[in-house]
Measured scan of single mutants.
Amino acid sequence: MIINNLKLIREKKKISQSELAALLEVSRQTINGIEKNKYNPSLQLALKIAYYLNTPLEDIFQ
């Protein structure tokens, strides 16, 4: 099972779900679904998340 630290990292960087969704060009519901482990992001989306949060991919999804 993948450990998902997206919410923790996003909140630590003081970025809202809506702000991150806008940067990634996805819906806020997509971010919410990823954070609640209801949706697994594509590799492309996971890499974009890591880029915009300036955090290694391995720290977000373990």
Rank of each mutant, 00 (worst) to 15 (best):
M1G: 12
M1F: 14
I2M: 13
I2N: 08
I2S: 10
I2T: 12
I2P: 09
I2Y: 13
I2E: 07
I3R: 14
I3D: 07
I3W: 09
N4C: 08
N4R: 04
N4T: 04
N5C: 11
N5K: 07
N5S: 07
N5V: 05
N5F: 09
N5Q: 07
N5P: 03
N5D: 04
L6I: 07
L6N: 03
L6H: 01
K7E: 08
K7F: 06
K7Y: 07
K7D: 02
L8I: 15
L8E: 13
L8N: 12
L8P: 06
L8K: 15
L8W: 09
L8R: 14
L8F: 13
I9S: 03
I9G: 01
I9P: 01
I9A: 07
R10G: 02
R10E: 01
R10T: 01
E11N: 09
E11Y: 06
K12N: 10
K12C: 11
K12A: 14
K12P: 01
K12R: 13
K13G: 04
K13Y: 12
K14S: 09
K14D: 07
K14T: 05
I15V: 09
I15C: 07
I15E: 01
I15P: 01
S16Y: 03
S16I: 03
S16K: 08
S16N: 05
Q17S: 06
Q17T: 08
Q17R: 09
Q17D: 03
Q17L: 11
Q17C: 04
Q17P: 05
Q17G: 04
S18V: 12
S18L: 11
S18Q: 12
S18F: 09
S18N: 11
E19L: 08
E19H: 12
E19V: 08
E19Q: 14
E19M: 12
E19A: 14
L20H: 01
L20M: 06
L20N: 00
A21C: 04
A21D: 00
A21M: 03
A22W: 07
A22L: 11
L23R: 09
L23Y: 14
L23H: 11
L24T: 11
L24N: 00
L24G: 01
L24H: 00
L24R: 00
L24W: 01
L24A: 09
L24K: 01
L24E: 00
L24V: 15
E25K: 15
E25G: 15
E25V: 07
E25S: 13
E25I: 07
V26F: 03
V26I: 10
V26W: 03
V26S: 01
S27V: 04
S27C: 06
S27I: 03
S27F: 03
S27L: 04
R28W: 14
R28A: 13
R28D: 08
R28L: 15
R28F: 09
R28T: 14
R28H: 08
R28P: 14
R28N: 08
R28V: 15
Q29L: 11
Q29S: 14
Q29K: 13
T30V: 15
T30H: 09
T30D: 05
I31M: 05
I31A: 00
I31G: 00
N32Q: 15
N32Y: 09
N32M: 14
N32V: 15
G33D: 15
G33W: 15
G33K: 15
I34Y: 04
I34V: 04
E35H: 03
E35S: 02
E35N: 00
E35W: 01
K36C: 12
K36H: 12
N37P: 01
N37G: 15
N37W: 09
N37F: 12
N37Q: 13
N37K: 11
K38A: 10
K38E: 14
K38C: 14
K38D: 09
K38M: 14
K38Q: 14
Y39K: 08
Y39I: 15
Y39V: 13
Y39A: 07
Y39D: 05
Y39Q: 09
Y39H: 10
Y39W: 12
Y39R: 09
N40L: 15
N40M: 15
N40V: 15
N40C: 15
N40Y: 15
N40P: 13
N40D: 08
P41T: 05
P41I: 10
P41W: 05
P41V: 09
P41R: 02
P41E: 03
P41A: 06
S42Q: 05
S42M: 04
S42F: 04
S42T: 12
S42V: 06
S42W: 06
L43S: 07
L43P: 12
L43V: 09
L43W: 13
L43F: 12
L43T: 09
Q44L: 11
Q44G: 12
Q44A: 14
Q44N: 11
Q44T: 12
Q44D: 12
Q44S: 13
Q44F: 11
L45R: 01
L45G: 00
L45C: 06
L45M: 07
L45S: 01
L45T: 04
L45H: 02
A46R: 13
A46Y: 04
A46C: 13
A46W: 14
A46G: 06
L47P: 00
L47Y: 09
L47F: 08
L47S: 08
L47T: 09
K48P: 00
K48H: 05
K48F: 04
K48E: 05
I49V: 04
I49R: 00
A50W: 04
A50S: 10
A50R: 02
Y51S: 07
Y51K: 09
Y51E: 08
Y51R: 10
Y51N: 06
Y51G: 06
Y52I: 14
Y52K: 05
Y52Q: 06
Y52A: 12
Y52G: 03
L53K: 01
L53W: 02
L53M: 07
L53G: 00
L53Y: 02
L53I: 03
N54M: 10
N54T: 07
N54E: 13
N54S: 11
N54P: 02
N54R: 09
T55N: 03
T55F: 05
T55H: 06
P56T: 07
P56H: 06
P56Y: 05
P56C: 07
P56N: 08
P56R: 11
L57R: 04
L57M: 11
L57F: 10
L57E: 03
E58N: 11
E58G: 12
E58W: 10
E58H: 13
D59C: 14
D59W: 08
D59K: 11
D59T: 09
D59H: 10
I60G: 01
I60M: 05
I60T: 02
I60Y: 02
I60V: 06
I60F: 05
F61V: 03
F61H: 01
F61S: 02
F61L: 04
F61Y: 04
Q62P: 15
Q62A: 11
Q62M: 13
Q62V: 14
